[in-house]
């Protein structure tokens, strides 16, 4: 049986194309499972997983927890607000304390880039990165690609524009790596203040005009403006941002083709996209959420099978 080339999922840039294919094939199977009347398989009855969230999250945390429970893993949850982290304990100590309770896998969200990589060098557990600062959010990128594949049949050859705050976005970075690995063309679009100066060296197109970007693409992935990560105002007001980078139905209808709209959530309705766009049949936002569970089941299942070896 094929297996992943890695022991942790720390970022898309550490995966190869075969890994992604394997994850998608496995997710196909689990997507069928979660649509059965009994949405559960006994695969991971002997595995214990700790979800460590050192940063706020609603959907990613729920999605991981549901994925773990549908695989019959034992699950413990931990958020930094309730932990000793605020008392000055180091990350390694916190995690090692939890691992002493015989935990096999750690799903971690953390505000600092590279936190998962750092941890993987210092603790004995399989690590799944659920978002580390502005670095990577690999399961989000996987579920995004999976959703494009589901909607358009294939990712290769497709044109995908990522719109919004690229500078502070782990979703953008993981998506760029994932889409390129599968042969898609990628463009980033946003105000120049929110585009990293050297982003074009990643082999992506750069555009600051939303209409041009939308006319170019097959899929538009609309990112949320991450006010919480900004140390200074990168644009004068939300109103002005929306005027230039918000997608509404009139704009969509005026394009020369029908494009697919995605959003990693949570949506600021009326900012990045209006309600009529979010709820339109061009939007696959809720499919992304459903696919998120299947993708995370696949990732956890594949990593757990390496632990068992």
């Amino acid at each position: 049986m094929s297996e992943l080339s890695v022991n942790h999922l720390l970022g898309i840039k550490y995966l190869n194309q075969k890994d992604i294919e394997l994850i998608f094939e496995t997710a196909d199977h689990f997507k069928e499972v979660i649509n059965r009347p009994i949405k559960k398989v006994p695969s991971l009855r002997d595995i214990t997983i700790a979800n460590l969230f050192f940063e706020n999250s609603t959907r990613t945390k729920l999605s991981f927890e549901l994925a773990e429970k549908r695989l019959s893993a034992d699950v413990i949850n931990f958020s930094s607000g309730q932990s000793s982290v605020k008392k000055g304990e180091t990350l390694i100590d916190t995690v090692n304390n939890i691992l002493s309770m015989k935990v096999d896998m750690v799903v971690m969200r953390h505000p600092n880039p590279g936190a998962g990589i750092f941890l993987s060098k210092h603790v004995k557990a399989s690590i799944v990165n659920a978002g580390d600062g502005a670095h990577e959010h690999p399961t989000q990128a996987l579920l995004d690609s999976y959703s494009i594949r589901e909607k358009l049949g294939d990712v290769a050859g497709k044109k995908v524009v990522i719109v919004g705050d690229i500078l502070h976005s782990r979703v953008a970075l993981s998506n760029i790596f994932a889409l390129q690995l599968q042969g898609a063309e990628v463009m980033v679009c946003g105000p120049k203040t929110l585009l990293p100066k050297y982003i074009s060296e990643l082999g992506v197109k750069v555009e600051t005009n939303l209409r041009k970007a939308l006319n170019w693409c097959d899929v538009a992935n609309m990112l949320r403006v991450q006010n919480e990560r900004m140390d200074i105002s990168y644009f004068p007001s939300t109103r002005e941002y929306t005027q230039q980078f918000g997608v509404n139905k009139a704009l969509l209808n005026s394009l020369n083709k029908e494009i697919t709209i995605m959003h990693p959530g949570p949506i600021n309705r009326g900012v990045e996209i209006t309600s009529d766009v979010a709820d339109s049949n061009q939007s696959i936002i809720l499919n992304q959420v459903e696919n998120g569970v299947a993708i995370r089941m696949a990732v956890i299942y594949l990593l757990a099978s390496k632990i068992k070896q």
Binding site: P113, A134, R170, L173
Partner: peptide
Amino acid sequence: VGKGVVNEHITSTKLGLKGIP
């Protein structure tokens, strides 16, 4: 510098670390 911790360039972009131009 702001919250920058490493050189602002392609490496900082790939790693999601804040850049110091």
